[in-house]
Amino acid sequence: MQLSTTQLKHQTALPSRRRHHISRQLIPWLVPLMLLIVWQITAQAGVLSASVLPAPTTVLQDGIALTQSGELPRNLAVSLFRATTGFAIGAIVGFVLALLTGLSTTWRLALDSSVQMVRNIPHLSLIPLVIIWFGIGEPAKITLVAIGVFFPVYINTFHGLASVDPELLEMGHVYGLTRWQQFRQIIFPSALPTILVGIRYALGVMWTTLIVAETVSTSSGIGYMSTNAQDFLDMKTILLCIIIYALLGKLSDTMVKALERQLLSWQKGNVA
């Protein structure tokens, strides 16, 4: 697991020189674009049959057809609802619990070792339990996503809070800061980069959990669309779902990165 990837650097080095700027924005798209072109060519040349790998244009047509029938927008909206609600619950619980254990020794002794113990359970193995406890409706799916999101948020927040430079804390003490000020001015900003890494990781977990959650009794959602397509070898819809997941993942990741740029503008290289 990458839960401890707190060393992950946050968006380093934006060069000031303009001509580098544009190429920097374009280069990351080069590999996906090349793949797309190669894919289209092989599909058109008939190297692979359409049932194995339909051409990107076929996938696009499938996407348009499903959008016009209203099926894709509806499933997308439902998935987004489940993902967002599950994420919000998991992230808030994880954050609050980490605040308790990160800031209070009593809470840490009472809770942290239990959480660390449970965290290694693959959360998808909890599906049967979740069905029994929460049924098969929306609460079950949202709970699964929340559990998946909880751990990276908890662990990174806890780690961030626990690894605040003690010298800065001593400085805060010497300069007469109240406990609240210590938290607001020193502990929280110092933990923030690590917390954001946790959130970025949790967003990834959110999507992967959702696909699986949407195979448990449901008739809506992108995960449902793709397992359903898989059952009947509907390759173009499977690929469409994969691409949608990739795009949603990229979108949420970019949003957190934008948030990082806003909140962590003090880091070298982030300053505009």
Partner: peptide, 26 residues
Amino acid sequence: KKHHAWLWWIVLALWLVVAGVGYMDT
């Protein structure tokens, strides 16, 4: 950078609206 910030707020708002529609649907 500041210039871009509002754009992300719009993306987030759209995201939440779509999720809200999904909620109605469920």
